[in-house]
Design a protein around this nucleic acid. Sequence first.
DNA 1: TTTT
DNA 2: TTTT
Lengths: 160, 160, 160, 160
Amino acid sequence: MLNRVILIGRLTRDPELRYTPSGVAVTQFTLAVDRPFTAQGGEREADFIPIVTWRQLAETCANYLRKGRLTAVEGRIQVRNYENNEGKRVYVTEVIADNVRFLESNRDNNGGAAPREESPFGGGSGGGNRGNSSGYSRNNQDPFSDEGKPIDISDDDLPF
Amino acid sequence: MLNRVILIGRLTRDPELRYTPSGVAVTQFTLAVDRPFTAQGGEREADFIPIVTWRQLAETCANYLRKGRLTAVEGRIQVRNYENNEGKRVYVTEVIADNVRFLESNRDNNGGAAPREESPFGGGSGGGNRGNSSGYSRNNQDPFSDEGKPIDISDDDLPF
Amino acid sequence: MLNRVILIGRLTRDPELRYTPSGVAVTQFTLAVDRPFTAQGGEREADFIPIVTWRQLAETCANYLRKGRLTAVEGRIQVRNYENNEGKRVYVTEVIADNVRFLESNRDNNGGAAPREESPFGGGSGGGNRGNSSGYSRNNQDPFSDEGKPIDISDDDLPF
Amino acid sequence: MLNRVILIGRLTRDPELRYTPSGVAVTQFTLAVDRPFTAQGGEREADFIPIVTWRQLAETCANYLRKGRLTAVEGRIQVRNYENNEGKRVYVTEVIADNVRFLESNRDNNGGAAPREESPFGGGSGGGNRGNSSGYSRNNQDPFSDEGKPIDISDDDLPF
DNA sequence: TTTT
DNA sequence: TTTT
């Protein structure tokens, strides 16, 4: 009835952009969020929280977010489930984001992977392929071709 | 770095109160939270989100929450993992609540299980056993005795 | 850059529906939200927080919310300012709601004012005047005619 | 009954640390939070939201926050009121913060005022006066001496 | 000016 | 499988 999540953390890897069979953009990444207390032993732990974004927001995230970047995410908790290879039901909890804030510009943080775009509001190579950073065109790609795991993304998951 | 969740939904069952080996109260329940849109086909779906409360809040939840009650929960997302019987790593996502609001009084809603306590601020049988609804005293109980699944609760999970 | 508020409280009065000069619905009400602690002396205090809703949500709120009802509100803090009669700048802080949840149905709570509509999803008198509870038609009304204070609502305040 | 605010924005000035008559630290600052849409004319507007922190958090904020810094704030909305010089009741809305995150380290942003401390976890001059940046000792100060406006802070405002 |  |  009400379901609201706000997180600030850092990406553990570059985001992954894919497309559903019907061509809708989806980007997934994981946010490492430090816990507000230290574990016994004094080490600070983190929660690794899977984030999913759809459509235009997915393309923006794929273009501008990179591993290590401090990022704020607003969204809702969603619990999916599917049957795995052994016929067992597996539950997957993700945050479906509807608002993502880039708290570090590209200038601030240049460790990790090289940015695919020069600047958050900079040029890009123009044209219709913007946002599809896989190098495949939107029509003949197979976004899941390199995936060993069961395909767990479909148009049925579309939140709106 | 920041991790905040606010949910409003209904309990799918009565809450379960247990104690860690060192005697700390933990209560778990699941909140059914309706999604803000309807699936294709027009049915309204819900997310079933596991909630964990600790210490005094755990005892209050065990005493006053019941299946079906409309409830607000504030907390943070936590992702635990453990190795299962087949040596596979399993990830469990829960909301660790630090604030729970009972949006329906006992009077409002008397379906489901009978309340164990008469009123939210009513008597109880007094004495040291308050909040331990398992019928075991706090010292000789085995809160996990009736559990087939691997014990996935320990003092290591203590959030503060 | 990020601005999110979630409140649960009770309406101090029936909501007030008005229309901007260009015919956009706006509803205002105040939420009494109990503080999480007691003041010295032991009395529990509350914050009285002004809420504003626009368009369709404004009409729904005007139709179904009433004085005393337990209500959840999601939105953002907005700070307006205007010059008063004495030429002094006055600051007004409100929560612009984009999501409102009715936590008590009409059946639960029938003290206070009589409901203008029978049931949350019930009939109403039908037709185009739905949601305009002032009795004026949408075109020839003056929503501010009965107001002594400076007109502090205009199309400029439109949030989207 | 539930009152939660999360903001990300930038300080409009250096924070102001004061002490109540009984010696409790209070820090006030204003956060400029960009609105999620542009006004007609295309300019992006912001809300200027007053933040209050107490005790240890007040001292930390006074030490490490500076004008212009990107900052996340978690807290609750509080509405105070007092009678002004002309006998008129004035309402003041503030966010009482219980969690503040510094999203830019001292290195990132050195515009505006010079930092009073070298680094977030750096030295300081040590000793009991830490956090009292007014230059007054905690006992003989008058935290309101340089204030023309009515004293609007007192131990009565203490949130816990 | 305030709600239960 | 994890980020600074």
